[in-house]
Design a binder for these strands. Structure first.
Lengths: 214, 214
DNA sequence: GAGTGTGAAGGCCTTCACAGCT
DNA sequence: AGCTGTGAAGGCCTTCACACTC
């Protein structure tokens, strides 16, 4: 299996996989680099290099075999057993993510959800058991949870991250607008929705003002 | 006013602003580059360069004046009137975003929400009027909407984007896992949650396996 | 002829390193 | 002594360009 270290390459592979599945479902069996490049919004050269990194190859005449690419990408992402995650912060965003993504993938299972509010931290939501946040460490250790999803308010984020790291999580998906201070052994992916909104507002205005055409 | 063209710089300015507001609320009046760098998770040199791009400057002895930085960043992001956005796709994610971000900022107002399902496309949600999606163009033109937020299922994304672009939107915030084909006069910010999940799962596993310490 | 595979070039962003300032 | 401001260097990622293949 190839070892891909670039975050950007991983993001693109995830995207290619979804495009490839759509092509496959449409009955296609082979694909050219430009057929991936256009829906991915990048250049064919980039696609070819990513596929090279992946360790697959194609032929000039007929391109790449979709099945082979999907197998290659799946090898990168898949695990023997599905990975387990927990979500902390059963607010509106947490609930939406649970509803949207719980049970959606074979390879990632959101095992439990936590909240500091007793009113939210019991019962089952979207097939996911809810617990008080003080049980976090116990559950992480008992179930060997590797991934934590943080949807708490900003002021609780670091404390929650500390607890998860101490309990042995190795990846965090951080939806707060705080940058977490964690050991280097833990990978953090920040999804900063506030920044995304501000960014699109800024560039929308710039494009409007400039009447950008090129 | 300085014209910042780098997307990454804009993202960091958004982050600096939130850190600065917290410092200000804590009673601080000045700040050194490293005091911004640590909570932002970057290097002091990067902070200084961003501030340089912003057109502010500090003094070796006392650093930067927080008020001046906030004014500078606000000048970048703020508009005379608040910018108007619409959201299309009143599903779980759309609802969560409305609840989370509607009325949250002075500079961005989510003016209306749309859905193709008649059951969802009436009434008021989180202070936001809901309409059938076929009224999209009319509302965008009438209210001079500049920003569109797309939270529809993947197969409807391109069609919704086309309608918004035709009606004159200049910025899109795309939460689907499809890359949109839009005129170059429209800015698109992709928030690909599926890719984020796959990315954190991949690197969590890598860190776990490698026992990364450096 | 059209597309792949890839070394080399290019571009953008980040970091270094140090002069200048207080 | 310690921090800012910034030219220069470095690194990473993307794109070019073309030999190679079918």
């Amino acid at each position: 299996m190839s070892l891909i270290t670039s975050e950007k390459t991983i993001e693109r592979l995830s995207l290619y996989r979804r495009i490839l599945m759509r092509l496959r479902d449409d009955g296609e069996t082979v694909v050219f680099s430009h057929q991936l490049a256009v829906p991915a919004g990048i250049t064919p050269a980039q696609v070819r290099r990513d596929i090279m990194n992946l360790g697959c190859n194609g032929t000039p005449r007929s391109g790449y075999r979709i099945k082979e690419l999907l197998t290659g990408i799946t090898e990168v992402f898949d695990t023997p057993q599905s990975q387990r995650a927990i979500l902390v912060g059963i607010g509106r965003l947490g609930l939406a993510l649970l509803a949207h993504f719980s049970g959606r993938w074979r390879w990632l299972h959101i095992h439990a959800a936590f909240d500091s509010d007793p009113a939210k931290s019991s019962g089952v939501i979207s097939g996911c058991h809810c617990y008080p946040v003080d049980q976090l460490a116990v559950v992480v250790r008992e179930w060997n949870i590797g991934i934590g999803i943080i949807t708490v308010p900003a002021n609780a984020a670091q404390s929650v991250a500390d607890q998860m790291c101490a309990a042995g999580v190795t990846g965090l998906l951080n939806f707060t607008s705080v940058r977490l201070n964690v050991p280097r052994s833990v990978f953090v992916e920040n999804v900063d929705l506030t920044a995304s909104f501000e960014k699109v507002a800024y560039f929308a205005r710039r494009h409007e003002a400039a009447g950008v055409t090129g």
